[in-house]
Design a protein around this nucleic acid. Structure first.
Lengths: 205, 205, 205, 205
DNA sequence: CATGAATGAGCCTTCATTCAT
DNA sequence: CATGAATGAAGGCTCATTCAT
């Protein structure tokens, strides 16, 4: 292949990948709004700039599109607290930062996290995107664990706790708060911000 | 109405209720197996001994059937640890009993709990059974709280923790274990049984 | 058969006939309210004191029930103006009486006549009750004709008009008025009362 | 949008409209044959060259399809006698033309008019296409009135009659004739052709 | 490439009808 | 006799998927 042709081909590949990205983005919008059970390809297409026919050009079928979307979802999910970890100078800073970021996330991205829990649950029924979901969950766990470890370090404490348990606890907390918030309780985020430091203090000492 | 007729009518009512129960049971089976998004009335009927027409004889529509089923589900869900609480003589007993019951539940009723998390999540999208779901969740929380309080009592410790936070932590733990178990990890239940006492000890002292 | 048995049997027959009558009555109620296309056997049963199962005991199927009901309908329809004819002393009396009775009928029995037109139309699609409908229509025609003839007699005029044409004209008038009334026009009955004498005067002189 | 795209888009719109037209045509066929109560979307689809899914591609729901069809129906209905009016040189011409056109209509388009009366009647039960039906009826009335007025003009007579009354009379006449024709009476159209001039002469002088 | 027309399986629901009790 | 439980065909509608243009 000549260099020129290669360049063209690469550009084509890029465009293909870009379109997939774009469509996955629309899929996530639709999914966040409607949930897995109620999201149709037509709905997704309508949120994009394309007709619904094109979805089957870039993705073999609905499952592939959703799987791809879930994978894309990951990027957003798993680095959220890293800045807080990097910037916190004291245990109290980190505590506050962690709690505040969680609360803010709850306030701003409730529907996206609703989707996350929905997809994680669907993965229990459908093999197809189970691997991706588990991968994301592991990264989330690692992310939480970075907070916990750093907190212990700053507080001069030891952690007698598995990363998975720590993640489970905070994830459970967040999920409950989400439930309340989406049920209309205005104070859910504040309550979450209160609960997080308490649990953190209990788990690490 | 004569006494005889009354008796007949009452029997009829009972039978009606009984059949609803029966059909709700089939619905739960189908739901546990397939999840909310993939469960159709025809599928439910096929799990029962009846034709799908019957479902509309006993329930006004799909929502009513599902709501009824969810409510029925509750009965199973919210008293599971009460015996353990009643029978535990020491903190160590309770710790062990709580952990073991959770692990056993995970081993035996994984699909039923998968359903629970599915329905709880659907309630974030659909108003229809949100109230029931929230109600069940509150009862589950109360159930967990009875364990925690009793544990503190037996251990001579104090609990500096909101019931909601305690529930969130254990629910998160269980959910993670469920994820792993349904992903095929054989040791998930054992790991859960290990993690529960640790967390309990950390949260209560 | 002994006399006693005969009496019992006759009583049984009477009861059978009576039940049919009763059920047909309920059918007419339902039909008048909902129209042919939207009336189900369940609806009819609910308007009666019986369960819907009984309908198939007294009638072979839906068509037979409706046919019977249509036939019953006739009795109500075809003698409405005879009193007016009998009592009118002058042409003006009759004119007024005829117009007033039509208007009153429109005011009080709109839904029943809506049903009549509905059934008459259905008979154009379904052979089954066509004969009965045609029979009723003939009697209605005869009834109108009695008015027209008597009017001519009282007015000392001659009628150069077929009975069918006379009936057609007044029936068309009534139907238009019904249309307007059921569309919400309050004055429909009054307008009908105005129009009838005019047409009568034009047709007979 | 470029000119080319615009042209394509316009063509697409045209094609869309054309297909709607086509499907409405099939709907009218089915309706004329079976009547409102017995016409299903699947039946309509079978009369067309398409699957039933297509109907929902071109129309939001059944009501929209039927409403559209009814409206289309109108075009055929409301100008039928205008040529006769335009071309008649004498009252006798018009009389004959009017009567003959009615009779011919009865002979050729009986089922279509059966449908008209069916739909008009259904509109008394269902709000959905009531407005369209009333609109068509008004136009039919106007059409008849054009005949009557022109006749009076040609005959040098005056009309002491409301347009609605004139329409009611002729519509009633036609409906009766339709009843007879569809009941199998061969002479119905001839009788109608006889009756029309008589009534016309009576109503206008 | 992209469109959107077309298909047909499948969903929830209604309903006439049958039949055991 | 009467009930009402049960059936299954049919209806309106949604939607993933295919494919001609």
């Amino acid at each position: 292949m000549t260099q020129a042709k290669e360049r063209i081909s690469r550009r084509a590949v890029d465009k293909f990948a870009q379109r997939r990205e774009q469509l996955a983005e629309s899929a996530l919008q639709a999914l966040a709004e409607l949930g897995y059970a109620r999201t149709s390809l037509r709905e997704i297409a309508q949120k994009s700039d394309f007709s619904h026919g094109v979805l089957h050009y870039y993705f073999a079928d609905k499952v592939e599109l959703l799987t791809y979307s879930v994978r894309k979802f990951e990027e957003i999910c798993v680095t959220r607290y890293d800045d807080v970890v990097a910037e916190a100078g004291t245990a109290a800073d980190l505590e506050r930062g962690f709690a505040e970021t969680m609360a803010t996330t709850l306030r701003n991205d409730a529907t996206m996290h609703r989707l996350w829990y929905d997809l994680r649950n669907q993965s229990l029924y459908e093999e197809s995107f189970r691997a991706d979901v588990l991968d994301i969950d592991e990264r989330r766990q690692a992310m939480v664990w970075r907070v916990v470890e750093r907190y212990a370090e700053l507080a001069g404490a030891t952690v007698d706790l598995a990363p998975s348990a720590a993640y489970a606890a905070f994830d459970g907390l967040f999920q409950q708060a989400l439930l309340r918030r989406l049920a209309g309780r205005e104070t859910a985020a504040d309550e979450l911000a209160d609960a997080v430091p308490r649990i953190l203090a209990l788990l690490v000492r």
